[in-house]
Structures are given as C-alpha cells and as structure tokens.
Design a protein around this nucleic acid. Structure first.
Lengths: 144, 144
DNA sequence: TTTATTTAGGATAAATTTGTCCGAAATAAG
DNA sequence: CTTATTTCGGACAAATTTATCCTAAATAAA
C-alpha cells in the first residue's frame, strides 16, 4: 500500500509530534531507534519532510527534529504521504492505462476510484494530532 | 496500488475471458498487443496464472490461452490478484509493524483496516464475467 | 577559537521489481 | 516423420526502491 519510505516517514513524524508536544527536540538516532527504521534511510526521508516544511531540522549539538506545535493538528496524514510519495497513489488508472476516465473507463475504473476516494478521504481527515495523541496515551505503538 | 505484474495480469485475463466467451483461444502475442503490455513479461504472468488454474494454456500451432466458460463468472478479481501478488496486499500492518492487531494497534490500524476491507470486498465481489462483459459491449477498454 | 555533535547531501551498494532472450518441450498439420 | 508454431522455464539485464557510507556544513559549548 504505502512504500517503505512512507511507512518510516509516517512513524517518524508521529514520534516527532509526540516529543514536540512536550517541547522536546529529537535526534535522528533516537527517532530511528524508537520507530525501528534504518538510520541512514530515515535521514533521507526526514530531509525531504523538512524540505516540504512538515518538520523543522536543526544542526549541531542540541540539534534534531521538531514540529511547530500549532501545526500538529493542521498536518494531515495526506500531507505526509504526499511529501514522500508524491501524488502517484492518488492519481492514475488502476490498470495503468494512460487514457482512463469516466467517459472512457478501464474495466475496473468505477470500483477502483471508489476505493481510492475512500483512501483519500481517510488520509485528509486524519490529523497528526490524533495519531500522536493515541501514541502518547499508550493506545497505539510504533515499535516492532 | 497494484504491481505492474498485477495490472498486466488483470488486463490479460479480461481479454482472454472475452475471447473465451466466443470459444476462441488467443496467443500470447495477440494478448500483449491488445492489452498493451510487454510480451515476454506478460508470458511469465500468464504462466503463473495457468499454474494457479485460473487460465488454461496449450502449446503448439493453434495453441494459446483460454478460460473455461463455466469458470468465468466464478473467478473474481480477488483470485487474479492473489494468484499474482499473493496475499501481501491483504495482510500486514499499514506501517510495516510485525506486531499490530486490534489489541496492540499501530496508530493507523483501524483506519487502514477499514480501507483494506473495502478493497477486499470489492475484489471478492467483482467477477471476471462483469469485467469481460463491459469490455465486450464497448463500455470499457484495455488499450493505452 | 577549538572541539564535539548533529543534520545535509552526494556517491555507492543491495534488493526487488520489471523486463528481455533464448533454447527446450509440446503439438498440430503436411 | 518432419516442420512450423506456440508455451515453458531458466538465465540474464535494466530500472526502481531500499539502504549504507562518508565528507561537508552548521552550531552549541568549553
């Protein structure tokens, strides 16, 4: 469903959000440990999330990653997925046809669009805040 | 969403079904042309569909692929996807966690399971017959 | 200013998916 | 039986995704 990059990116962002809600900055090393992802690959993903403006990064000792607290409930899962995987999971024909729309559909067009719309709606409605809160209160987990 | 192999496999199977409803057998070459897929790669996919018992293959002149007519409406999209991609799109955590279920969920567990259940239901309810009929009557297309 | 620490970013490698090539096996027809 | 045609299946190649390594740049603190 999601790429590995996206999985790691989502987990990392949620973890950073939890810490940011406590005004704490976290290092790449800590993130990778806590979300059980490869350090160097995670670094690349965090880089692109920083470039997209979803997270902030700071170099040097006491450096690390954080998220502006006011942003935490405006950031949606959709934003994270889009920043990492682009729009490839949101657009295009389910069977890979170049020309496929309601007027000239592929055989699975309607059904596929239905499922994908559900996915889009879910991603647009799910805030980083609720994901971080669920983790914070121990309702959910990110390791293993 | 689906792998390329799956996209080609679905398109090929629908095309074979349409021909089989007219008691015609089709060659790999014709299939690849008509569904706009790479010939040699399509051959591999058809091989695995044949091994799974979804399609029948015959060697030699007048050989080719076909589907038992009685099977066409019992075969579901789910069967095709499962034969090619296995169960990887049906099982496993949305964030790649090893341990993730209702009692110890990842942050997106419930929402993810919801979407995936929709997908499963759609795939299990969609028959090859309806896909082939849509193509046959010109309602849908497979090329470009 | 020097040093230690942390992210940035480029080069490279491994793994997986996608795709090609070609000889072998089967088989229909002359 | 021979030949032409078609799928089978193994080896190989290209492209993409996943992952690592290392140096540079920034920066906090001694």
């Amino acid at each position: 469903m999601f790429s590995k990059a996206c999985e790691y990116g989502i987990k990392a962002t949620i973890y950073i959000a939890v810490k940011s809600m406590r005004q704490e900055r976290v290092s790449l090393k800590e993130i990778a440990e806590e979300v059980d992802s490869p350090v160097a690959f995670t670094a690349k993903i965090l880089q692109s999330l920083a470039k997209s403006g979803i997270i902030d990064s700071h170099k040097g000792p006491t450096g690390g990653f954080q998220i502006e607290e006011t942003k935490i409930d405006t950031i949606k899962l959709h934003d994270i997925v889009h920043a990492i995987d682009g729009d490839k999971i949101f657009v295009g024909c389910g069977l890979g046809l170049e020309q496929c729309d309601a007027s000239q559909p592929c055989p699975v067009h309607d059904k596929f669009v239905g499922i994908r719309d559900n996915l889009k709606i879910m991603l647009k409605n799910t805030s980083l805040y609720e994901l971080a809160t669920g983790l914070e209160i121990g309702l959910t987990h990110l390791k293993r």
